[in-house]
Simulated assay, not measured.
Amino acid sequence: MSDRSYYAPKGGLPPQTQLLTDRAMFTEAYAVIPKGTFSDIVTSFLPFWDKSRFWVIARPLSGFAETFSQYIAEVQPGGGSDRPETDEGVEAVLFVVEGQITLTVAGKTDRLEPGGYAYIPPGVDWSLKNESDAPARFHWIRKAYQYVEGLDAPDPIVTNETLIEPTAMPDTNGAWATTRFVDPADLRHDMHVTIVTFQPGGVIPFAETHVMEHGLYVLEGKAVYRLNQDWVEVEAGDFMWLRAFCPQACYAGGPGPFRYLLYKDVNRHMPL
Rank of each mutant, 00 (worst) to 15 (best):
R4L: 12
S5T: 13
Y7I: 02
P14R: 12
L19M: 11
A24K: 14
F26A: 13
T27I: 00
Y30K: 03
A31I: 00
V32H: 10
P34K: 04
G36Q: 10
S39V: 14
T43D: 05
P47Y: 02
F48W: 06
K51Q: 14
K51L: 13
K51E: 13
V56D: 10
V56R: 15
P60T: 05
P60E: 03
L61K: 11
S62D: 13
G63N: 05
F64D: 00
T67I: 00
T67Q: 12
F68V: 09
S69W: 04
S69G: 15
S69T: 11
S69Q: 13
Q70H: 10
Q70F: 05
Y71F: 12
Y71G: 02
I72E: 06
G78F: 05
G80D: 09
S81K: 09
D82A: 13
R83G: 04
P84S: 04
E85F: 00
T86P: 00
G89P: 03
E91Y: 00
V93A: 10
L94Y: 15
V96C: 02
V96S: 05
V97A: 07
V97I: 15
G99V: 04
G99K: 05
T102I: 00
A106P: 02
D110T: 13
E113T: 15
P114H: 08
P122Q: 08
V124N: 00
V124D: 01
D125W: 06
D125A: 14
N130P: 02
D133Q: 12
F138A: 01
W140A: 11
R142L: 15
Y147T: 13
E149I: 09
D152W: 07
A153P: 09
I157A: 02
V158M: 07
T159H: 06
N160A: 15
N160H: 15
T162Y: 08
T162M: 08
L163Y: 12
I164E: 08
P166M: 08
M169Q: 14
M169E: 14
M169T: 09
P170Q: 08
D171S: 12
T172N: 09
T172L: 08
G174A: 09
G174P: 07
F181H: 08
V182E: 10
A185F: 03
D186E: 10
D186F: 01
H189S: 03
D190T: 15
M191P: 00
T194G: 07
V196D: 15
V196A: 14
P200R: 04
G201F: 01
G201K: 03
F206M: 11
E208I: 13
T209H: 13
M212K: 11
E220N: 13
E220K: 12
G221F: 01
G221N: 02
Y225M: 10
V232C: 00
V232T: 08
V232S: 00
G237S: 03
G237Y: 01
D238R: 06
W241L: 15
A249F: 01
C250S: 14
Y251W: 09
A252K: 07
F258E: 01
R259S: 11
L262A: 15
L262G: 12
N267W: 03
